[in-house]
Nucleic acid binder design. Structure first.
Length: 269
DNA sequence: TCATTAACCGTCG
DNA sequence: CGACGGTTAATGA
């Protein structure tokens, strides 16, 4: 009933002027903000800018595919990326929705093994790419980079572990509730009517993230909407009753720490 | 075309 | 049996 108020601002991803190149300042900002180089002096980051490459991907194209050999580290500088596995039956299991300035597939970047997921650009995106050779050099030169990378890698592992383990422990309703809570940790911002998940997601995205069928996700989200727990406008989900969500997902009895899904900067220590 | 609803059906506790 | 969730078809925007 209540009007979202700004339907005109819906970005048309069909014709953005996004083909503009990234400035060195933007590359620097991505490197500086990605969390891996905290504690590394700015002038050293500038040296890294010099060896970084910038890759462009239009919406809907793959950045890499699961199983591809990894040749370096990707850092999302602009746009949005969907990271997922493709199951034998064709279903997609989303392991992450990325937002700048996020590093992704750290494990593959570090050990040089194949990518463990497929990454598709949701919007026109820019990626800062550091070749493996540069990574080795950075690791050799900067102790902080090594520490930060280990911490970030741990976050990645824990997030995936929670997601995959949860799938074996919970039913569809609980899974959807958990996913909403996790997304709220990651992208939640305060809104007048509750907590808004600041990331445009269709129902299929939610379903693939929770590991349930599209119709099941729709059924559950529809029920939750009727119960006044949330509402959706223009692919943005607003959570109005977090307490109801956490009771639905049985958070009390759960030993997993969902705060690992929050961005590291907002939860650092 | 895509989101949603509804009816149906097999599985499992 | 009955809840649950996947499958399928019909309907709606």
């Amino acid at each position: 009933m209540s009007t979202p108020g700004r339907p005109s601002s819906t970005l048309e991803k069909t014709k953005p002027p996004g083909s503009r190149r990234l400035t060195p300042e933007q590359v620097f900002a991505t490197l500086k903000g990605c969390g891996l180089l905290d504690g590394v002096p700015d002038e050293d980051i500038c040296d890294i800018v010099a060896v970084a490459r910038v890759l462009s991907f239009s919406a809907g194209t793959d950045i890499y595919r699961e199983g591809d050999p990894c040749r370096g580290l990707h850092l999302l500088a602009k746009g949005r990326v969907r990271q997922y596995h493709i199951a034998a039956d064709g279903r997609e299991r989303v392991v992450g929705f990325l937002v700048p300035p996020a590093p992704f597939e750290l494990a593959a970047a570090i050990d040089g093994g194949p990518y463990t997921s497929t990454a598709t650009a949701l919007d026109d995106s820019k990626v800062v790419f550091l070749p493996s050779r540069a990574l080795v050099e950075i690791g050799r030169a900067h102790r902080f980079a090594r520490l930060n990378t280990m911490m970030q890698l741990c976050r990645e592992i824990r997030r995936r572990d929670i997601s995959s383990t949860l799938a074996t422990l919970k039913g569809a309703k609980e899974l959807v509730a958990c996913v909403l809570i996790q997304l709220a940790q990651q992208y939640g911002v305060a809104a007048p009517d509750g907590f808004r998940i600041d990331y445009r997601l269709n129902r299929q995205d939610v379903a693939d993230r929770a590991g349930v069928r599209l119709e099941t996700a729709i059924r559950i989200l529809s029920d939750l909407t009727k119960q006044g727990v949330l509402h959706t406008a223009d692919k943005i989900i607003v959570l109005k009753d977090m307490a109801a969500l956490s009771s639905m997902s049985d958070c009390e009895a759960c030993h997993f720490d969902c705060t690992i899904f929050a961005s590291p900067s907002s939860h650092d220590r």
